[in-house]
Nucleic acid binder design. Structure first.
Lengths: 226, 226
DNA sequence: AGGATGGTTCGGCCGCGGCCGAACTGTCGC
DNA sequence: GCGACAGTTCGGCCGCGGCCGAACCATCCT
């Protein structure tokens, strides 16, 4: 297969509207599930599954299994550059604004199911780890005695459930772990309860309130303004 | 039509092997005829014509009529950048060399049918014009009396024919006119006869011999080494 | 004028590939 | 165990589009 044939193969992958929607939805570097991408592309989950398999086979996307979900992201920055260069040729309309609401807001703080992710989620995990309250290993996590006391004091009491208590969850924008499981959910719920964070409508982005900025700094030594 | 749909449309145009061959054949900035592009793409002239029409409609190619030929070239450098970025994603093979034999040789000097083009052809036209030997207008050209004497002295006597005697021909790499017609053919033939230039096999590129370098400098004040 | 050549248009064939319904696998949570 | 949900695979439908033969138009050359 010649270079030109390979180029045509890649270009043909971008040439389908559904796949183009999938790729552009991932252009901000996030990783999304197959279902989210199916919705973004306005096709059924089966159809999206086929497209995602082809894009992954061609190494345009990278896939990582996470429980019963499969997260897809652009395989490399080169892919994003390619998309932008095609956009540059295709888009004669000047002054177009970023179509993704929120922009960097998602990278700063967002929900991952019921727990916190983004820079805030990772910083929270770092803080608890450094303080010796939790210990995150490769695929599990534990809370120390001091940690239990700290969490009780903070007001984050995980509900009783068979669900895993504390688990590291790879953060897709930061590429470092944040805290999932019941503990992660309890932390997020308590932050919401305290008014430190606020959810946004129709978005996974989370805003940090002034009270939250102060609270995260005092309790956890977190300052995201840097 | 949304931005993403437009991007998909453009990408789909690159996604066909025949069109991909056409576009890559034009990546060095030259302008080629429909037939040459059909050959490059290994498809019939009718098929190539259809592809070329679509590429031109989408403003990926620019077309210019030249007699009974139609020359196609990339519509803008953006298109070339796009092709390269797609190549970058598609081509995992490192260290690939430029597939176009000759490289810059074509831009320096080449034949355009039976006359000279490229930097040499344009320089020749400039020299003759500045010396008052020929006068090139928008779509025609004339040779002055002094010009006729000069050409006779040089040994470039156009053969008798109904073919147009002197005509400016837009040079595709220099974007400026060179001399075509019987006069252009006679000049090229004489330069070849004098051993100033040499044709290359299977290429439109022409090499300037040491004798040619000296001759062009002395007779025409041309120095392409700059 | 007549012939040669470059290029396009038309018509029809055919196959690739996108799409979805249905059924299946795997994971989670109770 | 069960039900719910994410995701994939399979099968079949269907239409878009690439391809070429043939005819047609335009330009050049003699």
């Amino acid at each position: 297969m010649s270079d030109i044939t390979r180029m045509a193969t890649v270009a043909a992958l971008l040439g389908d509207p559904a796949r183009a929607n999938i790729l552009t939805a991932l252009m901000d570097g996030r990783a999304l599930t197959a279902k989210e991408l199916a919705y973004a592309a306005r096709v059924s989950p089966q159809t999206a599954s086929g497209h995602l398999a082809r894009l992954t086979d061609a190494s345009l996307l990278a896939m990582e299994k996470q429980g019963r979900h499969r997260y897809f992201r652009l395989a490399s920055p080169l892919v994003g550059q390619m998309l932008e260069s095609v956009m540059a040729v295709a888009g004669p309309e000047p002054g177009r604004i970023n179509p993704w609401r929120g922009g960097d807001a998602l990278r700063t703080a967002r929900t991952c199911y019921d727990h916190l992710a983004g820079r805030l989620g990772v910083a929270l995990a770092d803080s608890l780890t450094e303080a010796g309250h939790v210990a995150l290993t490769g695929d599990g996590g534990e809370v120390t005695d001091r940690g239990h006391a700290f969490l009780r004091d903070f007001g984050a009491e995980p509900v009783a459930s068979k669900r895993v208590f504390c688990r590291p969850c790879l953060d897709w924008s930061e590429r470092r772990p944040h805290i999932a499981g019941r503990l992660g959910a309890a932390l997020a719920a308590r932050c919401l309860e305290l008014g430190w964070i606020a959810r946004q409508r129709d978005s996974r982005a989370v805003t940090i309130t002034p009270a939250g900025a102060q609270g995260f700094a005092e309790r956890f030594g977190i300052d995201l303004a840097e």
